[in-house]
Design a protein around this nucleic acid. Structure first.
Lengths: 198, 198, 198, 198
DNA sequence: GATGAATGAGTCTTCATTCAT
DNA sequence: CATGAATGAAGACTCATTCAT
């Protein structure tokens, strides 16, 4: 799958996941660079070589984290939307699913944000983001075609949605500890009707 | 003040600014950690000692960049709003000023985003952000009191505004190269009236 | 004897030999140090434990390679010379046998050459070389006693013979792919009569 | 020149040379791989970073050693031959110059020999060797054309000369400590007239 | 006999920082 | 003020070797 091509025993898979999880925590809290491989293996309580048994490099591990997170969020949104046909409702459900997912993966946000700041990680990040963008754009186009929302460049609107969703997750859910469902309400209301309401 | 306490000749100030500017570029493009002090002084064409003549450390330089940027953005917004009394108009003008400022300082966004991902820089970042938040909250409270916008937690609304503004600046103005004024229009419309418009 | 003291089943002997052969190839092509134990077992398609079942260490394996090669070359020369009494002819036949042997074991040359460059392997190398030297010296002494060749330190002459033989094997037979018999002719002619001939 | 492109002060040049010399000693005695960068800088009594101030890597330093040695030997031979026109005499003088040069640089031989055993260093080695070969070939061709030596492939003869010269330098001069001039006599006599003499 | 996993000392290399000149 | 040189701690990574299963 996303491994370095080794066939792993169940015990091996567990170890690998332990390392992945621990690395995520550390990266999120302290930062990618300030977290050394020694920190990661130390936290799991294994020798240094173990890290390189499961991963090619610190960088590859990070890249894998990135890809997996983006994949997982999207899968979650997909599943949530699956049974809905109305484009505006799909959009809303997708947004709510995103808030829920972010609430369950607070550390990931830091990793994504960091990835955007370094040349070497931007391409990997961009890829996943353009997928998310594409999903939103699809719904927006339909909604515009149906006259349900005011005309506008769907890509721009999609960026607006993603920006709002991400920032509120970070600031209100993660930082302030607000209930993600409530914040999702706020986001949806604001996005659909604006500050002045209807 | 913003220096490490040395009195600088005009030439010295220039040197210092050169280093500051070059560091900003590099940090923004490559990342803070991947940019070495050697890179910075090399780009300016001076010896390594010069760097430590003007700055205490790489970290202190970064911190200064952060503080100065936040201060400058706020000053810009303040000046723009100064002659306006209507709270909703102040909000709008502030937003437009922000887009304009960001358009002129595309690199800064990366630095701020990075600062949020490392323990050691978060406090410095938070400080400036809470000021920006406070400004927006003030206007929002007034507007709510006047019944101009629907009731809601002004702090939450402020976060929404900042999130939207930042993300659109990054994605549309910086990345896509859109005209900041136009994107500001979009942001204001969206924030005030929502996707469904009035 | 030449093993690490284990009694091996036929299958075991084969495995052992596979490892020995593969290691020889890799050492010769890439070098001793750049070739890891993982490379060796990987090439044979077995687990790492197997290596340490048959050999005490990477170093011991290399030492064994060295000893075995020198032993085998000498055996070959001995057999070739066996039925000849004339010292000059014995010398010539020995030289030709050497060219033939080297032609069949091109990789060994690299190993011997490498062994000479590291403190830890020099003693093992020297041992075999002094044997080869002794053999040649014996014939040369006889030939000198019989007045068949000009007087001179037989040891020096032996070194000259070995140096020439080795270098021509390497450069002409191995590198250029020349026929070893023809190169042996050249070597013998040159050694016996010199560049100016008779 | 052969540096990593830094402009060095006199003191810098000296440091660099110290490192070069010390590395040569260690490489020759212990081997390239068993000699760590820490060993090299430790022997000179400087910090580890100094090494990387003057060289890009351990490998690059080795490569430079190789190139410089080959260049220097050739220069020496060139100078020795300069005033001589007779091809056979040029050959002889070149051989004698080689013995003298090797006598003064006993460590180099090990480095060259080692370089031949590792894939990554072979190209660099080959380059210099083909130059040496070409020089000898030139003289041999002339000598053959003049009928001074028996006909034969000059390249093969050149290899024979180089092989003999190198081996005798190593075994008799370096190892046994013989006088290089005397060994050169031996080599020249042997090469020109063979074991059986004239 | 064999394997995959683990160990940890050791390697090369980088880099913020200092300092003599 | 400025420079080139030096420092040395710290980092990523490798690899011979061991061992539980």
């Amino acid at each position: 799958m996303t491994t370095n091509g080794r066939k792993l025993t169940p015990r091996g898979k567990e170890r690998r996941q332990q390392l992945l999880d621990h690395a995520t925590q550390r990266f999120a809290e302290t930062g990618y660079h300030p977290t050394s491989v020694a920190d990661i293996v130390g936290g799991v309580g294994v020798g240094k070589g173990v890290f390189y048994w499961y991963f090619d490099s610190k960088e590859q591990l990070f890249l894998e984290l990135l890809a997996e997170a983006q994949r997982d969020l999207r899968r979650t949104q997909r599943d949530a939307i699956a049974s809905e046909d109305d484009p505006l409702r799909r959009l809303e459900i997708g947004i709510r699913a995103a808030f829920r997912w972010w609430a369950g993966h607070p550390e990931i946000m830091n990793l994504l944000q960091f990835a955007a700041t370094e040349k070497q990680f931007r391409p990997a990040l961009r890829q996943g983001q353009s997928v998310a963008l594409g999903d939103a754009v699809t719904h927006l186009k339909e909604a515009i075609a149906e006259g349900r929302i005011t005309d506008g460049d769907p890509e721009e609107l999609a960026h607006a949605i993603i920006g709002l969703t991400g920032h509120l997750s970070r600031e209100l859910v993660h930082r302030r500890g607000d209930d993600p469902e409530r914040v999702a309400d706020l986001a949806v209301t604001l996005l659909f009707d604006g500050l002045r309401g209807r």
